[in-house]
Design a protein around this nucleic acid. Structure first.
Lengths: 109, 109
DNA sequence: CCCCTGCGTTCACAGGATTTTCACAGCCCT
DNA sequence: AGGGCTGTGAAAATCCTGTGAACGCAGGGG
């Protein structure tokens, strides 16, 4: 995989499909209306399924800089993302919290 | 990869794999949801397979200090760890008690 | 044989730490 | 000016940690 920024062309996770190059995330073929940040965060998480990613890693990928010591941005965007994903996929638990560390994307439960 | 003090990069024990650097312990590739303490304890035990480790040794590694005379923390966390491991690997007996001494991690039975 | 003791295991809980969510002000773009 | 996006602070909710206490088990002594 010789991608510059690490963008896979497509990522599937059950009924969810992500197309980074098209700036789109679809559920059953219907696009979610995610903001740029939300999508970037989802892409970053989904590019590393089952991997626990720290806030620093996520911030580095999505914001392309280092977070302040007490930055809650990642948490806030995870929350917004969950809200929109939960609306389109009720009951699904795609993003898991790992206390004291960060977050993890898991295609299944 | 600048490696820390005594952290092996990966430890395998049958279906269990531990990746200290990623703050993760996996069973069949799926991460267990361990707390920081639980993971530290598991790492410490698993770094010395087949070796009986005293409470003092474990406490020193995980808590980075000395236990009070009647500290039950190690026992409690071993118990919690066993519960979570037993859930993911029913029937497995990874952590053995050595009466009057401490605990031992054994990859096989 | 029964009781007592020592040890390990687990439960319950309070305090602290962390995460989640809400509300809002500034920005950018149209 | 209007509408949505962003990031920040702070309250609310949740989880983690360590502790004391109860419970079970095994061995020794009466």
């Amino acid at each position: 995989m010789a991608m510059g920024t690490g963008q896979s062309s497509r990522i599937s996770a059950g009924r969810l499909e992500i197309r980074p190059e098209e700036h789109a995330a679809l559920v059953d073929g219907r696009p979610l209306s995610l903001t740029v940040r939300e999508l970037q965060l989802l892409v970053t998480l989904a590019e590393h399924p089952q991997r626990i990613m720290t806030r620093e890693e996520l911030f580095a990928e999505v914001w392309a800089s280092e977070p302040r010591r007490e930055d809650r941005s990642v948490d806030v965007y995870v929350s917004r993302l969950r809200a929109k994903l939960g609306e389109a996929l009720p009951g699904a638990q795609l993003i898991h919290t790992h206390n004291g560390i960060g977050y993890r994307f898991s295609p299944d439960g």
